[in-house]
Design a protein around this nucleic acid. Structure first.
Length: 300
RNA sequence: GGGGGGAUAGCGAAGUGGCUAAACGCGGUUGACUGUAAAUCAACUCUCCCUGAGUUCGGCGGUUCGAAUCCGUCUCCCCCCA
């Protein structure tokens, strides 16, 4: 199986720099596993790696799109797998670096996405959460049992799978083996919660100093608030500020809070959705120990 | 010195005699996750031997079958008049 190194984990602990370090040590190229850094216009708020931090290591999946485009997991899986093959072709090690759990999991595991025909979903709009969930329990009872009725987006998605393709979500998932399609060594970077939160708060302050507000202003003139990417943390929080409904301090506070909550969700994801080698980035010994383990894995 | 207002769980804030361990928001914790995922959603958050029990609503004392809610008093905070 093809070897792929993965530097996943929580935001703000230094994954990007660690990825570059590993790329230099093991002759690698980096594929970003980040759903926001994909967009050219979203740089400060996405904590995107700066070009002079890349240290001549090739980075893929950054600035790939403009805010005129949209993207989804399926696109990422396709793009990522192509890049992995290309990099291996060049005799180098593909290194996935990022924190978008679903993207990374879909890339590494045998997630199957099928072609879906356009289906009119407007009729769902008028239904209540309960009615939609009721509908789902008829066409796909297993998924209905798994998805909470208030999770409207998921309920609608599960419904639309059955409407726009031949299989239900349950059937689709049951056909997969839920195993890795690569010889992947998955690192999940973290650090003690308190320390992490402190860093994250500080990072938001730095983003403001770096001109985040102006970046948001420009992004909305291109994309408007309706673009999915504008729902990213560091952007959506400024909506009410720009509309004159709240002050800047409130917006910044929300960015901090949402970043913390996001970090928590990432930890939960990597803890339960894939099996990772956890790396405490605040512990030098653990980091160097990890590098040794990568070395062993490489020569395996 | 006089007059008025207020003290509620980590914070903000409802509640003004039983349905209240106490709404709601924030903060925090835990979890779900297969085409918007930095998205979306759920649970928990006084204590404990936790499908039950125990101690709470500034302190103390009282009224009452029953008080965060009524009365007295003390402490602290805020506003107004001197």
């Amino acid at each position: 199986m093809k070897k792929v190194l993965v530097v996943a984990g929580v935001t703000g602990v230094g994954k990007s720099a660690f990825g570059v370090e590993l790329a230099k040590l093991f002759n690698g190229e980096i594929i970003s596993g980040d759903s926001v850094a994909l967009y050219k216009e979203l740089t400060i708020g996405s904590a995107k790696i700066h070009s002079d931090e890349m240290d001549n290591i090739n980075h893929h999946g950054i600035n790939l799109l403009t805010l005129k485009d949209t993207f989804n997991v399926r696109d990422f899986q396709k793009y990522g797998r192509e890049k992995i093959d290309e990099i291996i072709e060049r005799g180098k090690l593909p290194i996935i670096v990022g924190g978008t759990g679903l993207y990374i999991r879909a890339l590494l595991y045998d997630y199957e996405f099928q072609d879906e025909q356009e289906v009119d979903l407007d009729w769902m709009e008028t239904l209540s959460n309960d009615e939609l969930h009721q509908e789902l329990s008829i066409v796909d009872p297993q998924q209905a049992a798994l998805i909470h009725k208030n999770n409207r987006k998921r309920v609608i998605r599960a419904l639309s799978i059955t409407k726009s393709s031949q299989k239900s979500k349950t059937e689709l998932i049951s056909e997969q083996s839920h195993s890795l399609v690569y010889d992947a060594f998955i690192l999940s970077c973290m650090m003690p919660r308190e320390h992490l939160y402190e860093r994250l708060n500080l990072r938001v302050e730095k983003m403001m100093e770096a001109g985040l507000l102006e970046e948001v202003r420009q992004a909305i003139t291109i994309a408007g608030w309706d673009h999915p990417a504008m729902a990213a943390i560091g952007y959506k929080e400024f909506k009410s500020f720009f509309e004159g409904d709240s002050d800047l301090g409130t917006a910044v506070g929300l960015v901090k809070r949402n970043t913390r909550r996001f970090a928590k969700r990432q930890i939960t994801w990597f803890k339960h959705q894939m099996s990772c080698r956890w790396v405490d980035m605040s512990n030098e010994n653990d980091v160097s120990q990890t590098i040794e383990e990568v070395d062993v894995w490489m020569s395996r």
